[in-house]
Amino acid sequence: MFCPEPMSHDPASTDQPHGFPPTRDSVLVELRSEDREKRERAWESLAAAYWRPVYCHVRLRWNASREDAQDLTQDFFLRALGGNFFEGYDPGRARFRTFLRTCLDRFLSNEQRDAGREKRGGGIVFLPIDVGEIEAELLTNGNPDPDPDQTFHREWIRGLFILAVDALRAECVAAGKEVQFSIFERADLLPVEGVDRPSYRDLAEEFKIPMTQVTNYLAFARREFRRLALERLASLCGSEEEYQSEARELFGVASP
């Protein structure tokens, strides 16, 4: 298990690439825990972060129908919980998301081979999957032939960011900072193609606070969002090297 370095706030400190979040329990370690409760919690975290890219991969790479893709996604995570899917993961050889995709392809290949031998999930829903939104994006995004690899990567980022946003919302509500979150939501979470984001002045008028407070609130929310996203990322990586590489790609490069 690795321990990401704590964020340095000492201006005189040597040049660090950027602040890494404090230690967070690794999902990958807890997946192998003897403690069933810990294992289930880790599985939930893994599924929450990965169900989107997994679903898209099944749909695009394996040309599964919407219903089949939904069932296969459920099955994949169910097997991951009960079996030893990720036992062979070696952080020194590949990123975890690459390894997971290999496991997924192997799983789907076996499923295809055994098709009809046993009936799949039967529509029993146990993951909070809302594929309607993904389907709408996949089919109406103006891209009739989306690239499966790029889609997997994008959906992985989306899953991670959604977890971080949900965590930020919960933290803000608990701390009585709903206004901070609302401003973050208006400025950063709602942009759509072709529509201008509200200006600081617009937000100041809307929330009836000075413009400087808008920028302070936004700075706070963005900082916390970044911290929470990096925390979740760290928990989903197998090594510090993988984490650093993923973090740089996520926040340091404009496009994958």
Binding site: I162, P191, L250
Partner: peptide, 14 residues
Amino acid sequence: MTRLSDAALEHLRD
């Protein structure tokens, strides 16, 4: 559940 458009995703990364 939170929804993030592609534009929001890129904006958040920025």
